[in-house]
Structure formats: structure tokens, C-alpha cells
């Protein structure tokens, strides 16, 4: 079973703003636990936090510096 890691709709306020991953706090293929802080997302000058929605193996799909929007899947957890 896999759980997608999605940029939550309420991570930042304005729907028309985009962000980007600053860094992944775990390597691709690392074990993560539900609730772990796994990535930082930058929107303008504000750094926001992305938590693991499930426990399992992290498979990163979007690298840092790529533009992301609310609702985008940036990784999956197997």
C-alpha cells in the first residue's frame, strides 16, 4: 500500500501562490514514521513544514527548487 505525500491545501493561505521544497529531511528510500517532519517548503520568504502522512519507506518524487502547488503529490510512502 502506498500513501501519497500531498502539499496540504491549508499549508499556506493564498491559493494562487506557489512554493518549492527547500530540502528533504530524509533520503530517498529512508524509513519514516507518521508525523515525522520530512520536508521544508518555502513560500515567498516563509519556510513551512511537511509531515509524513504515514509510516513506511519514503520515495521522493519532487526535488528541491521545483515549483509546487497546493494539492501536488511530492512523494509517496510505501
Amino acid at each position: 500500500m502506498t500513501t501519497p505525500v500531498i502539499i496540504p491545501a491549508d499549508l499556506w493561505d493564498e491559493d494562487d501562490k506557489t512554493g518549492s521544497i527547500v530540502l528533504w529531511l530524509y533520503a530517498d528510500g529512508a524509513k519514516v514514521k507518521q508525523g515525522d517532519l520530512i520536508a521544508e517548503v518555502l513560500v515567498e520568504k516563509v519556510t513551512l513544514e511537511l509531515e509524513a502522512p504515514a509510516t513506511g519507506i519514503l520515495r521522493i518524487q519532487v526535488e528541491p527548487e521545483v515549483v509546487v502547488q497546493k494539492g501536488d503529490t511530492v512523494a509517496v510512502i510505501e
Partner: peptide
Amino acid sequence: MSARILTMSRA
């Protein structure tokens, strides 16, 4: 759990 990768700021 795997080791976490941190920035200097977070560390």
C-alpha cells in the same frame, strides 16, 4: 528509524 538530515539552523 533512519537518521534524519538536518540543516545547521534546525540542528
